[in-house]
Nucleic acid binder design. Structure first.
Lengths: 197, 197
DNA sequence: GAAAAAACCGACTGAGTACTCAGTACAAAA
DNA sequence: TTTTGTACTGAGTACTCAGTCGGTTTTTTC
């Protein structure tokens, strides 16, 4: 494996676990085995390393997204929603470092002044919310999900699932036992209830 | 106002807006008008400033909590839940700096190695979740909320509301338009539905 | 196999960091 | 009036930081 790839991979882990500011180039050099000069040969600045990490992460997430929407077929929209929630939780385990990174403040602060960073972040988050929105729209088409604004509902579901991921990543609460309750809550929230009047 | 109070107040703002690490003692000294020596006369370390901020924040939140539970009377549990959600959003505006601070990673990282910090954080978050839990329990007693695990449901509602606050603090989405949808979603999620079989 | 190019090295730089300390100002106590 | 104690000062300290630079090794090209 080339040094550049090693640097990107190790930087991702360190930025995720310790934060961008709290990871020094000296530490990155030591962990990768590449001299500090080598790191700055491949990347102009420390920030550029972060942006390249985010770029590959975006491509990664987008390909996972198409893999999910193409391969999986669901009977109802509400089942698709449960599949989407499971998919998000599955991804958060598969790519734990990325999710740790995205739960830090640095990416958002950088996004405020750096359009490239903003674009990457938007792509990633739109991708996630889109999946939930598609599930709502599908459910409303087949009658399994009641009438409600699709995008807003998708955002609300996203906050719930991402909150669960946060509990899991920070070890704040046994997320496993919360998962069943979360899907049940979503189901009650979304279900198409016949009007009783 | 004494210099010590000014230091605490300004440090709170800077830690919230720029982060703990990204706030230097030189900047804190300049902004407060107190010499760096003065800051270290009142506080042994930079971390101690943060811990004292968190301590007063805890006391603050706990007194708001009792104010909410004592003064407000609700007809049903589900109305109490809506009141609790509004209360949380109201607090997040009233004490924006504190909520910005609590949405950073530093407090949680410090909590992992510092029991004092952990205690303060636990007190604050338990306080919030307790309000939601009490609403669920009250609703189950009066029949407005269906049978579901109270604590877990409270945690799920917390992730939703805190997610909305995050949207608002980070300016990610027009939180005002999401609020109505959030309360409606919670209502659907919690409502006691008669069994139709 | 020589020349050119790309990859790599680590000592070095200067700006910035949290924190120290000898000393000042000033009010209350003796 | 003298002493004592508290709030305060800012230059100084040892250290860390991202980024540089002159030079060496490895790979590619012809």
């Amino acid at each position: 494996m080339k040094k550049k790839e090693i640097i990107l991979q190790v930087a991702m882990q360190l930025f995720a676990k310790k934060g961008f500011k709290d990871t020094s180039m000296a530490e990155l050099s030591k962990t990768t085995g590449a001299a500090e000069g080598t790191i700055f040969y491949h990347f102009k600045t420390k920030q550029d390393i972060f942006l390249e990490i985010l770029k590959t992460a975006k491509e990664d997430i987008l390909s996972e997204f198409t893999r999910f929407t193409e391969n999986r077929k669901f009977k109802t929209g509400i089942e698709m929603m449960e599949g989407a929630i499971s998919f998000y939780l599955y991804l958060s385990e598969l790519k734990e470092d990325l999710f740790l990174l995205l739960h830090r403040r640095y990416p958002f602060e950088l996004a405020e002044v750096n359009p490239v960073c903003r674009d990457h972040l938007e792509s990633i988050y739109n991708c996630f919310v889109d999946i939930f929105e598609q599930a709502v729209l599908a459910g409303q088409a087949d009658g399994s999900i009641g009438p409600m604004p699709a995008r807003k509902t998708a955002l609300i579901v996203f906050t719930m699932v991402d909150g669960l991921v946060r509990f899991k990543l920070y070890n704040l609460y046994d997320a496993g036992t919360l998962f069943d309750e979360l899907t049940a809550s979503c189901r009650r929230m979304l279900e198409n209830k016949p009007v009783t009047v």
